[in-house]
Design a protein around this nucleic acid. Structure first.
Length: 665
DNA sequence: CGTCTCCAGGTTTTT
DNA sequence: CCTGGAGACG
């Protein structure tokens, strides 16, 4: 059945969807049906006979990529296994897998997340004779990222770390590993040094689309510019008001750069909001108009006025959490609101702990997106490290993780000797160990040497199994048994074998995921390395089917692109939003903090509750807090202010909830 | 020399 | 609550 574009889209959306040739800039306000436009645009391309392999759609999160490709499949009813809808980073991995050998890496390279990166920095420091404890490695990781992505320049304040930075980079190369930044940077490097490769990619991806364009970094922009500059069919979609990732290098000035680089572009603004009530939208519009640095636009909606935004002032964070859950119970019981229609948004991950407690004790099913992903749990990282080493034994960071896990008698003294040898010969640790195995005279004790030999035999045995192209899952299961990981967990958690059981169960779940992946015929890239690359890029958990029907608790950052019938925004306090550290860093960040607040407000469809505690426990202290200054930027008549509770009077509280119940519709 | 146990710290937002 | 590091013990 042909697409009914005119019926499915409004005038502006339609214009954007059918404008396939030439550069296109779409400024898409919050809730303006951006994803809808993009998915129909892709469907339209396919209908016009453009081959799926010629289309590239880039997003920032795995979630967005997944949603987009599912929706295109739904609309077209096709399988579309050659359509590339991917995150920037995943696309970078794809390019590198094919081309990284040009830079002297092997295609079995490891990808380092933040934790691995910090370990690598520590290794580099140790080798230079610097005590890693004397360094703020977390800060250094950020500095190195800034340097690498061209966002920070060497200056008198940071030049002292230049040598360490160079050493870090050399180590990555020695380990045959790349960090997240490299996933963008190295493809650019390859494109520059090997024009033929660039040309082939340009030739393939004649139509390129970029979602959340305001979140692209300068390097990411450079990347897509290189790809798109030949055919110039580059469509970028973004909203400068929702740029909230500048700390990670996002540069919404890229919108301006795009206008300069592609002067022939067509610009389309989507300003009709389909999501929120007039009240909520008016508040959001007014708030964001305080930002100086923005493209002029005014969202409007045909939706009804709706109810006021309400703000409450609980005494402390415990009361805040109780208030939120009580209100949710009331609304579900009396109004029939479903749990999945609620979103509770917070500025920082740590704020969610108290709310989680309250949800748990009220038996409200919820899911948190944020915090650590399943794949970053220690027990999973251990198993993954073994798998990494099978593919890439030079990966020192992962080798160190498993060298003595489970304990096999290779302690610090032995490790030091291995390190000395490795440094001297410019070997990876694994190569040094192999050399030790065959050396005539050994600097390590007899016992340690036996352990090293056993370890190498173990790895080599399983490397062969993997290389033989056998089923991977049974091989890894066999490996887990062989190292007696279960015994290790029991030993580690003697006092509490429930924890050991729980962790081992996680390992089982992980193997199930692995098995499902291996058996899925749609996965073209077989082999351990493809699985590893895929899961390393999942830094947050994706929604699974059993998560449906649950309430949503998340950071504001994680909420971008989502919407909820009813939103609770907790911790609407000064120093939380705007966040003290952010302002401290640079007072100009106030605009980004305001955008963050704007994103939070515009998630709400029908109703927005805000809470601002009067006191809050920070560390071990209870401090007085003040309401967020942003509240004053919203017209008073749009908000219903609730006088601070004077006492914890049960009767009063019940009376209050009765009132809310009767007034909410 | 390796392992176990106890202690301190927790980093805004994330690919 | 969990992780990583230091210092005591075997």
């Amino acid at each position: 059945m042909p697409l009914q574009l005119k019926k499915e889209l409004n005038e502006k959306q339609y214009q954007a969807a059918v404008q396939l040739e030439g550069p296109l800039l779409v400024i898409a306000g919050a809730g303006s049906g951006k994803t809808r436009m993009i998915t129909f645009r892709i469907a339209y391309m396919l209908e016009m006979g453009i081959h799926q392999s010629n289309i590239l759609a880039l997003t920032f999160t795995n979630k967005a990529a997944l949603e987009m490709s599912e929706r295109v499949k739904e609309i077209t009813g096709q399988k579309l296994s050659n359509l590339t809808v991917s995150t920037f980073h995943a696309f970078g991995v794809k390019v590198l897998r094919k081309t990284i050998d040009k830079l002297g890496y092997k295609d079995t390279f490891s990808i380092y997340d933040q934790t691995d990166k910090i370990s690598a920095i520590k290794n580099a420091a140790r080798e230079m004779g610097i005590h890693p404890e004397s360094l703020d490695t977390f800060e250094l990781a950020n500095l190195f990222s800034g340097i690498k992505m061209g966002r920070i320049k060497w200056n008198d304040g940071n030049r002292q770390f230049k040598e360490l930075y160079n050493s870090y980079m050399e180590h990555l190369f020695l380990y045959n590993a790349v960090d997240f930044d490299d996933l963008i940077n190295l493809p650019i490097k390859i494109f520059k040094e090997f024009p033929d490769i660039l040309k082939a990619y340009q030739q393939q991806f004649k139509y390129i689309m970029v979602d959340e364009f305001q979140d692209t970094s300068s390097r990411q922009y450079e990347f897509i510019k290189m790809l798109g500059t030949r055919y110039r069919n580059l469509c970028v979609v973004g909203d400068d008001d929702q740029s909230i990732y500048s700390w990670r290098g996002a540069n919404y000035q890229n919108i301006v750069n795009f206008e300069l680089d592609f002067p022939e572009l067509v610009e389309i603004k989507l300003e009709q909001n389909y999501r929120s009530t007039k009240n909520i939208l008016a508040a959001a519009n007014k708030l964001i108009s305080h930002n100086k640095n923005r493209k002029e636009k005014e969202l409007w909606t045909g939706v009804e006025h709706g109810r006021s935004i309400e703000i409450f002032y609980p005494e402390n964070e415990t009361r805040e959490a109780e208030f939120i859950t009580e209100m949710i119970q009331t609304l579900t019981l009396k109004e029939g609101v479903k749990y999945h229609d609620f979103g509770i948004l917070v500025r920082t991950n740590s704020l969610s702990a108290m709310i989680e407690n309250a949800l748990l004790s009220d038996n409200i099913p919820y899911k948190v997106s944020g915090g650590k992903s399943f794949f970053q749990r220690k027990e999973i990282k251990d198993i993954v490290a073994y798998m990494r080493i099978l593919e890439n034994p030079d990966d020192d960071v992962n080798l160190l993780r498993i060298l003595n896990t489970p304990r096999r008698g290779i302690g610090n003294a032995t490790l030091k000797k291995i390190r000395e040898l490795a440094d001297r010969q410019d070997y990876s640790l694994y190569s040094a160990m192999v050399a030790l195995k065959w050396a005539a005279d050994s600097p390590v004790t007899q016992k340690a040497k036996a352990s090293i030999d056993d370890f190498i035999d173990l790895i080599e045995y399983f490397r062969e199994k993997i290389a033989e192209g056998q089923q991977l899952v049974p091989a890894i299961k066999n490996l887990i048994e062989r190292i007696d990981y279960w015994g290790y967990l029991l030993l580690e958690h003697q006092k509490n074998d429930k924890v050991a059981k729980w962790k081992y169960k996680n390992v089982g779940i992980f193997m199930d995921i692995f098995e499902r992946w291996e058996k899925n015929p749609d996965n073209k890239g077989k082999g351990l390395i493809n699985f590893l690359n895929k899961i390393t890029l999942i830094t947050r958990d994706e929604e699974s089917d059993d998560e449906k029907g649950k309430l949503n608790l998340m950071t504001i950052h994680a909420s971008k692109g989502l919407e909820f019938e009813i939103v609770f925004l907790a911790g609407v306090e000064n120093n939380i939003i705007p966040h003290a550290r952010s302002i401290e860093e640079n007072p100009d960040n106030i605009e980004e903090e305001r955008r963050l607040f704007y994103v939070a407000i515009t998630r709400a469809k029908k109703k927005l509750f805000m809470t601002s505690c009067r006191t809050r426990k920070i560390g071990h202290e209870i401090v007085d807090t003040g309401p967020s200054p942003f509240l004053e930027e919203i017209p008073k008549e749009l908000i219903e202010f609730h006088v601070p509770e004077t006492s914890v009077d049960q009767e009063e509280a019940e009376d209050y909830f009765a009132r809310i119940k009767s007034s909410f519709k």
